[in-house]
C-alpha cells in the first residue's frame, strides 16, 4: 500500500451532462474524454496528491473521488454516498440555465442526506463555452447564500480543475487538524471563494476574454 496521511471521500453531484465525469477524468488522468456516455450508478477514482500544509510541509493525501450519475433513476444509489462524504462538489453547466435551476433540488438532497458539516463546493463548469448563460456573479451569490465555496472550471481546457481538488484537499486537512476545536467557525465565515480574493479576479479576467462574459458582468 502506498503511504498517505489522510484519506478523504469527495462526491460529485449535479444534473446529467454538466461534466462531472469529465472533471474527474481531467483531474485523475489528465484527459478530456470526448463522447463520454452517461455514467451508470457510481464510479470512483483514486488520486494521491501532495499538499503543502499550513506549516509548509508537504503531505500525501489520498482523494477517493466518487463520480455519480446525474440521471434521476440513479438517485437512490447516489444518495447513499452523501453521508460518508468529506466534501461534496455540486456541479452545474454555466451554459445551461436548467442545470443551474436544479441546484435548489440538489441543495435539498444535501440537507437531507449529507453530514451537516460536510465541505460544499459549487462548481460552474464549461468556462470554455462562449454561450454562457449564468454570470459569475449569480453563481457566486448562490454559493454564498448556501454556505458553499465557489469556483468556475473547464474540463476541456483544464482550467481550475487541479486547483479545485487541491484546494479541497488543503481545506480538508485544515479541518481535520482543527477537529476537536470548532471547525464550524471556519465554515460560517464570509470567505466563500476557494483561494481567497485573487481567485475572483482571475475569474473576471477569464470571462472578459470570453466576450459574452463582459455583457454578463455589466448587466450585474
Amino acid at each position: 500500500m502506498e503511504d498517505y496521511k489522510f484519506l478523504f471521500k469527495v462526491v460529485l453531484i449535479g444534473n446529467s451532462g454538466v461534466g462531472k465525469t469529465c472533471l474527474v477524468r481531467r483531474f485523475t488522468q489528465g484527459v478530456f474524454p470526448k463522447g463520454q456516455g452517461a455514467t451508470i450508478g457510481v464510479d470512483f477514482m483514486i488520486k494521491t496528491l501532495e499538499v503543502e500544509n499550513s506549516a509548509g510541509q508537504r503531505e500525501a493525501v489520498k482523494l477517493q473521488i466518487w463520480d455519480t450519475a446525474g440521471q434521476e433513476r440513479f438517485r437512490s444509489i447516489t444518495q447513499s454516498y452523501y453521508r460518508s462524504a468529506h466534501a461534496l462538489i455540486l456541479v452545474y453547466d454555466l451554459s445551461c440555465q436548467p442545470t443551474f435551476d436544479a441546484l435548489n433540488d440538489w441543495i435539498r438532497e444535501i440537507q437531507e442526506y449529507a453530514n451537516p458539516k460536510v465541505l460544499k463546493i459549487l462548481v460552474g463548469n464549461k468556462t470554455d463555452r462562449d454561450d454562457r448563460e449564468i454570470p459569475v456573479r449569480v453563481g457566486e451569490e448562490f454559493a454564498k447564500a448556501h454556505d458553499m465555496y465557489f469556483l468556475e472550471t473547464s474540463s476541456k481546457q483544464g482550467e481550475n480543475v487541479e486547483k479545485l481538488f487541491y484546494e479541497i484537499a488543503a481545506e480538508l486537512i485544515e479541518q481535520a487538524r482543527q477537529k476537536g476545536g470548532l471547525s464550524r467557525n471556519h465554515h460560517n465565515s464570509s470567505v466563500t471563494n476557494l483561494g481567497m480574493k485573487n481567485n475572483i479576479s482571475s475569474f473576471q479576467s477569464n470571462c472578459c476574454s470570453g466576450g459574452v462574459g463582459t455583457n454578463n458582468n455589466s448587466s450585474n
Partner: peptide, 8 residues
C-alpha cells in the same frame, strides 16, 4: 436500473 432504484 429502474428496478434497482425501486428496490433500493
Amino acid at each position: 436500473q429502474e428496478i434497482l432504484s425501486t428496490y433500493l
